[in-house]
Design a protein around this nucleic acid. Sequence first.
DNA 1: TTGTATGCGTTATCAC
DNA 2: GTGATAACGCATACAA
Lengths: 337, 337
Amino acid sequence: MSTTKPTIKDIAKRLGVSVATVSKALNGYSDVNKQTKARVLALVEKLNFIPNQQAINFRKKSSSLIGLVLPQINHFYFSILAEQVIGFAEKDNINVVIKPTFENLKKEIMALKDLIKQNVDGILISLSNETRNPTHLIETHKMGIPIVEFDRISKLSPLDKVTTRDKEAAYKAVQHLIDRGKKTIAHLRGPLLSQNFVDRFLGYKSAIEEAKLIYDEALVIQIQPNSLEGAKQAFLKLFKKRPDIDAVFAVTDITAVGALEALKENAVKVPAQVSVVGFSNWQLSSLVSPKLTTIDQNPYLMAKAAYALLKRNMSNKESDAKQVIRIKTDLIIRESS
Amino acid sequence: MSTTKPTIKDIAKRLGVSVATVSKALNGYSDVNKQTKARVLALVEKLNFIPNQQAINFRKKSSSLIGLVLPQINHFYFSILAEQVIGFAEKDNINVVIKPTFENLKKEIMALKDLIKQNVDGILISLSNETRNPTHLIETHKMGIPIVEFDRISKLSPLDKVTTRDKEAAYKAVQHLIDRGKKTIAHLRGPLLSQNFVDRFLGYKSAIEEAKLIYDEALVIQIQPNSLEGAKQAFLKLFKKRPDIDAVFAVTDITAVGALEALKENAVKVPAQVSVVGFSNWQLSSLVSPKLTTIDQNPYLMAKAAYALLKRNMSNKESDAKQVIRIKTDLIIRESS
DNA sequence: TTGTATGCGTTATCAC
DNA sequence: GTGATAACGCATACAA
């Protein structure tokens, strides 16, 4: 039953014209007789001819494919980013291949390799927490593949990138706590080597200092940004030592919920006695009780900017000056502060 | 700065051998001298040569690409499924293009079209809630493209499929409630046209009936499966009319949490007075308080089975007998029951 | 064991 | 306006 799909060759033969003419007719070239063009189109219709996109891509050295490398898919924030990117790409008739790295540098390197093999037209990448050295990005770039970093970026690469205004956001969050009259504000901070988390810490610190409050190292503890239970236990310990704490700024929503639970266990009133602010505006944050005050990172804007930058990279083969775009954030005030 | 990527031609030239030899060396043919093979491999290493997958694919009429069509990415369950599928495909050096449909039939049809254009080697699809008629699937299949349905399947298509044992799972959940001594069990059911939700309702009903309890239509209300607030309001109303309700089986975790909140608002003790059971084992379910009893759908097994089925479809061009695989579920008993 | 030649389906450069 | 023809990068049948 499988009549092999017709090609322009078949069409040409049946019409007694050349493949060149058929190709031109198909692609709206001006130098083709109206009559012949009509004949071609008619036969195309009749045979239900579909041009072989793969051959076109091969010939044109494109793939109508971009790669999206990110730490995780099963993750509230990254999955939104993925949906957004796919949405933008769709408008350009570009499909997207997603490569999760699970915060693993080796997987990240392999992902790039796979994408290069697949001949993607460009790559959007959000770095794993393990990634210090961006040489794999630079090499990819040197191969002439457009690549832009987003969300989790490296400071050491000469590429276009877009990320969150983490420091500003953290500052805003802590300032809000200070406005509420809080004076002993703890910070659940993330891994020291992740720029985003470092910036959030920096924003915290600068808000404290600018308000002429005392910056107290003992109020800052490091936690796993993805572990509710870990944050809960860590904060439980901290709060025991420092029951004077009257607010918590957590580096992620999930750790903020950990703090919330610790507080609940101690029958502490939130926000009356202790306020809590998270980061990222996960769905979770509006589901817990009390509803969590948090920072919205505007994933829509981030995806939009990243995709726009990638497109620019894909069209201008000559590189413009690289830029770093920082996405604005919004403080979402809810019940926990 | 973009040194054009080396091809096997370059390698051949620099080594003074033919492209055929390089190709053979690269592809593990036996009829190639160990020495020359070593030389080829060495140069490949040195030049950091990556074979042009696109050319290979074009030549072999494959794409090393599969399509994954699903209702959403920003969704706890589907995002796990996506990660799993990508993991399995990766082992076969296959990349996956993800197409979210946002529960929209038109988008689903477009997604298939895009994937066909992209020449994917196969398609895994989980249907949108809007999809009644699977003609687009059937047409895709007729074009010779391997396609298998998973999770959200259609009863009307002659394709391989894998889904959850929804009815059995629901039965198990309700049976558990009955074992706890509950007698007036409400059911928050999903849309009538979605097979999975219908099956869950059927499981609920049959557990009730087999236990010789009275099946009471008034205890079953229909809600939006994704709306916490909707479920909360709906259950609030129901509970007002029927304060004798002593348990709730909700069609999803998020609606179960809605019920939980409604109960909290009425100061009802969970599970002492009313037990609650959800469905899907979302991360959310272990984060709320009390922690939610729920059904784990084993997304790992589902993805594995679906991918295996797709692979079979991709290798055997001659179709074996189509099958429907139903994935087992686990009841996860936590604090809410 | 190695090389030659052909083709996959299309576009694009020239001639005519 | 139209048509040869040469690529694109690789795999493979066949010859050497």
